[in-house]
Simulated scan of single mutants.
Amino acid sequence: MTDVRAHIRQGVHGALHVRAWPHPAPRYLALLVHGYGEHAGRYDEVAGVLTGHGAAVYAPDHLGHGRSAGERAVIEDFEDVVTDLRAAADLARAEHTGLPLVMVGHSMGGLIAARYAQRYGSELSALVLSGPVIGAWELPRRLLALDEIPDVPVGPAALSRDPAVGAAYAADPLVWHGPMKRPTLVAFERGLAAVAEGGDLGDLPVLWLHGDDDRLVPIEGSRVGVERLGAGRATERVFPGARHEVFHETDRAKVFAEVTGFLDSVLV
């Protein structure tokens, strides 16, 4: 896609960079919430699907990520990132008043989106979670137990069976290619606890997408969190053989069809 606009808003800790994929006459708003170490620009194809479905799409680069302010890959409190996300939502609503708002959160973005829904659920018409970091995710605890965090970045092959996805990720200068940082790991533990204690989402429609070969965020750990949020009411779609990034997988056309079909069923 080439028709992408850039906005700068004041975030909790500095400049917040927000991408916008416009639509001439949208019927709803979609807010994309990216994962750890990456940035909103990696969601161009997802945004294209959603604009083709009738959405005006917005996506911030989180604190410490992409073009937004902050030390790279450092988040000390996910509540601040949720507040930044609401600034992006306010931007979308200011440009298109009166439209329903749906949120799509991937991985760490699933944690952020779930917490947003707990804090501001009345503002949302639907929530889509892709490989969400909620429930029982053991990586922060394991790494924090070490005296030194190993300098092991996310392996590109863990993202998708499509080798082009891994190659693009490895070559992307806006992606963080270093180790996880201790303050962020501590924040993950607090964020997981906040979502666990934050209550379910009532009648908010929730779609949960996951690859059954996701080794970064194993499916059974996420299931614990999704069940707490949706009390068994969430729509679940598991993709055989898919790795962590179902939106970038070899069968992503099926994933996109699930998303648009779900939105058609709830945006009436």
Rank of each mutant, 00 (worst) to 15 (best):
F188Y: 13
D214A: 05
E45Y: 09
P205Y: 07
H106V: 05
Y28M: 09
R223D: 08
P26I: 05
R72E: 06
L32D: 00
P156K: 10
A196E: 11
G191M: 04
E79Q: 14
P132Q: 01
A73T: 01
D203H: 10
T83S: 13
L101N: 02
D77E: 02
A171K: 10
V175L: 05
R228Q: 15
M103F: 04
E45F: 06
M1N: 07
R115E: 13
D212N: 13
D172H: 10
L127C: 05
G202I: 07
E79H: 15
A253Y: 06
Q118S: 07
L111M: 14
P163S: 10
A55V: 04
E76Y: 00
G64V: 06
V102P: 10
L144T: 02
H96Y: 13
L63P: 00
L144D: 02
T51C: 14
T97A: 12
F262Y: 03
L101Y: 10
V154A: 03
Y58E: 04
D80I: 01
G48V: 14
G35R: 04
L29P: 03
A193D: 15
R141E: 13
A25C: 09
A193L: 14
R141V: 15
G211K: 08
R93V: 06
L144F: 12
E245I: 05
V238T: 15
A253T: 12
V246Y: 00
H13L: 06
D162E: 11
A171R: 13
L63C: 02
W208S: 12
R72D: 02
Q10I: 10
P132A: 03
F239K: 08
P60D: 07
A167E: 15
S125L: 07
R42D: 09
S130H: 01
T51G: 11
H23K: 07
H177I: 10
P26E: 14
A20I: 09
R93G: 03
G70M: 07
E258N: 09
P218D: 03
S160V: 04
P100F: 10
A56R: 09
L159P: 11
E123D: 15
L124F: 07
R190W: 04
A113Q: 06
S222W: 00
L146C: 09
V255S: 04
R72A: 11
V195F: 03
V154L: 15
W176K: 00
D214H: 01
L16H: 01
S222T: 01
A126P: 07
G155C: 09
V74W: 07
P153T: 03
F256L: 06
P205G: 11
G232C: 12
R119T: 11
A157D: 15
G105L: 10
E189N: 08
V195E: 00
R27N: 07
V4E: 06
I112T: 13
R72C: 01
G135E: 00
H106P: 00
R93F: 05
T260W: 04
G221E: 02
A47L: 14
Y28R: 12
Y36I: 12
S222Y: 00
G225A: 01
V152Y: 04
P156C: 10
A145E: 14
A89Q: 11
I8E: 15
I8T: 14
L207P: 06
G191D: 09
E245A: 13
E123Y: 03
V175W: 03
